[in-house]
Design a protein around this nucleic acid. Structure first.
Lengths: 211, 211
DNA sequence: ACGCTGTGTTCGTTATTCCGAACAACGGAT
DNA sequence: ATCCGTTGTTCGGAATAACGAACACAGCGT
């Protein structure tokens, strides 16, 4: 036992671990639930997409069971994340303040053939997805509210889009970017007479912390 | 089948995963054993240090059981590593993932006029910037290393780009996405004979977690 | 030869994960 | 007021993961 016995210089082995596994999986349920709700999934839907019985998911979310590895893997995959991320929980301190709301700067490479436009910086984000968005003329995309704190970024590649949220309406043309609250109903309309193409990013605030 | 609910163009969830969990934990036993032997530990020793019965460890190493999450956590800790590392096995991820066009799920709005393509999901990011990238034919963009853990996402809108990082080279055409490490020198080249247009996102990992 | 120490394996039992179905609770319809 | 479809929950029962002890096979020593 213990003591490195061996001639070989094995690396110093830590002797910790031991009974600390419970605490490691302590907030797993909370995390699973947080991710599931971030995707607006019900237990049944997540069950279908993951292949895990919804009763199990319910128990896992309330830490009433000690799931099998394969179960956790299935859930992690369905939630587009890894096991470690799920285990890590939310013990991360969001710092870094780096506001840079100036107008879209443009960088050029040495040979002058490349243009790099910073479309939008953002910080303190724990989870996001981004989308490629196409809309034919007069196409409309209605979105129901996302979780509180969610911010949506829209960068228009071609065409002309109109965004309405919380009673306000703005128009963005090709090359412009919009940033707006997404935790209220909002709507996108292609008001141009050509196809519109945009890149959309959805940034969810992970958990409370102040607003 | 009917994406969730409603109206919204909320995030489209992938329907993959499903029964692929087995293959994910396939070489877990091999990995555990490799790590254990790397430390010159016997089953009994690892059992003591981890708190897992050695009979279980034996079965896990031969993939004769489907361990509990807490069991895997205990073993991972005793082996000074993380669950994901153990799951990843030794398939040293190429660190440059290629997301084919066909793999990008596409959602349609109710009126059928809008197409929403998820270019690339990513989780638990604390800080990022994204860019609109234009390159004339044979244009080159050289980038020096970003902070450790930084991952770069590239979504090609039009044209054809070649990415080289850590000795690996991949090509992405319009509609495809690349995801690769950016904490080493990397280079983008427009290898097509037309202008290339892409959206690039730089995601910095905020907290340590060595990679 | 014999014991001895350590390896990894297999064996009963207990404890619990997992599933599917049945359940209650809510909200929206007609 | 009553039917729905949906939410998340709880309830048997089958499957099995976990444990500890007993097991076989080695290598070394006297």
């Amino acid at each position: 036992m213990s003591r490195q016995g061996g001639a070989s210089g094995n690396g110093g082995r830590s002797a910790r671990s031991q009974a600390s596994a419970e605490e490691a999986t302590a907030d797993l349920g909370k995390t699973i639930q947080r991710l599931r709700k971030a995707y607006n999934l019900s237990l049944g839907e997540l069950s279908e997409q993951s292949g895990v019985a919804k009763s199990i998911i319910s128990q896992i979310e309330r830490n009433e069971t000690n799931p099998t590895l394969s179960t956790v893997v299935k859930l992690s995959r369905a939630l587009d994340t890894t096991v470690d991320e799920v285990l890590r929980g939310e013990t991360q301190s969001p710092f870094i303040e780096h506001q840079q709301k100036s107008a879209v700067p443009i960088l050029e490479s040495q040979d002058g053939l490349c243009r790099l436009a910073i479309a939008g910086p953002l910080n303190l984000i724990d989870f996001f997805q981004w989308y490629d968005f196409h809309a034919k003329p007069s196409g409309v995309l209605e979105s129901s509210p996302h979780p509180p704190g969610t911010v949506e970024h829209l960068y228009v590649v071609t065409g002309e889009l109109e965004v309405t949220t919380a009673g306000e309406t703005r128009i963005a043309k090709a090359g412009e970017a919009l940033r707006y609250r997404a935790d209220v109903p909002h709507r996108l309309v292609n008001i141009g007479d050509t196809d519109a193409h945009a890149v959309m990013m959805l940034a969810l605030r992970q958990f409370g912390a102040q607003g």
